[in-house]
């Protein structure tokens, strides 16, 4: 079976905890298979560190099939590395060359403090959702699922926005550490569906207010988030959110 033949130098961010300072540490790896995923390469590194009596590198990961949104590595200057539309766990070593030096850092943003090594705290995203990213419908309140027909084009657009996995790559890559793509994806999904209408203007105001409170930066429309998003969430969502926000602030009578 494949033990590979790639030799790599890793520069990995090591940080003991949220209070201590961190630094990049060099590690040499050999016999890496091009068929390994990036995280499996880290498994190899950690196994070596444990065997040497050193502390393994802490990083977030779970499903390893690109859907849970837990993995979060800033690889050679890009979130989730150089390939488009993949998460770190779906990035494979064949995307690199023998002899490469790879720099791996955690997501960096004031709103995503580093917990340890490459793991960051993304609970700000949960609080944004808790502030309004839902439809207020208690269990048992629902009418028949087909009672409200939804034009396919609208349902599909809502689905595309809903495909967000909440990984935070948008924040990580944005030069302003802005969370607008994440927030607008949820605002859009619900604004596009009839079920989201009753709370449409309330929702956008609450979520934006929470986003600001968390300390994310402002959007300057560079488009980096869209380019790096592993799920291809579109900038159109940000425009839609802005539109709804102005409608909410200037037209809607509901004070939030």
């Amino acid at each position: 079976m494949s033990t590979g033949n790639m030799n790599l130098t890793l520069q990995v961010w090591r940080q003991k905890n949220s209070k201590s300072a961190g630094k990049l540490v060099d590690y040499k790896l050999s016999d890496i298979s091009p068929d390994m995923s990036f995280l499996e390469m880290f498994d190899v590194l950690n196994e070596q560190l444990i065997n040497k009596g050193e502390e393994p590198v802490v990083f977030d990961h779970d499903c390893r099939e690109g859907i849970c949104g837990m993995c979060s590595m800033f690889i050679n200057g890009q979130p989730h590395g150089p390939k488009d539309l993949v998460t770190t766990c779906q990035l494979h070593m064949r995307s690199f060359n023998d002899g490469d030096t790879i720099v791996v850092e955690p997501w960096r943003a004031k709103a995503f403090p580093v917990i340890k090594d490459l793991a960051v705290d993304r609970s700000a995203f949960d609080r944004i959702i808790a502030s309004g990213g839902f439809v207020s419908v208690n269990t048992g309140n629902a009418q028949d699922a087909n009672a409200l027909p939804i034009p396919k084009i609208q349902a599909d657009a809502a689905f595309e926005a809903a495909a967000c996995i909440g990984c935070g790559a948008c924040v990580a890559t944005c030069k302003n550490a802005s969370a607008m793509l994440f927030v607008s994806a949820k605002v859009s999904q619900l604004a596009l569906l009839p079920q989201g209408q009753p709370e449409r203007y309330r929702r956008v105001q609450s979520m934006v207010a929470q986003m600001d409170e968390e300390g994310f930066g402002n959007c300057t429309n560079t488009g980096a988030c869209e380019a790096e998003c592993p799920k291809g969430i579109s900038l159109e969502n940000i425009a839609r959110m802005n539109r709804d926000y102005f409608s909410a602030k200037f037209i809607s009578e509901e004070e939030v």
Partner: peptide
């Protein structure tokens, strides 16, 4: 505000790849 949103910068960033 934007600068404050990222107090610690990346050691290696490659913004030309996406904007």
């Amino acid at each position: 505000q934007n600068n404050a949103a990222r107090p610690e910068k990346y050691a290696y960033n490659k913004p030309q790849a996406n904007s």
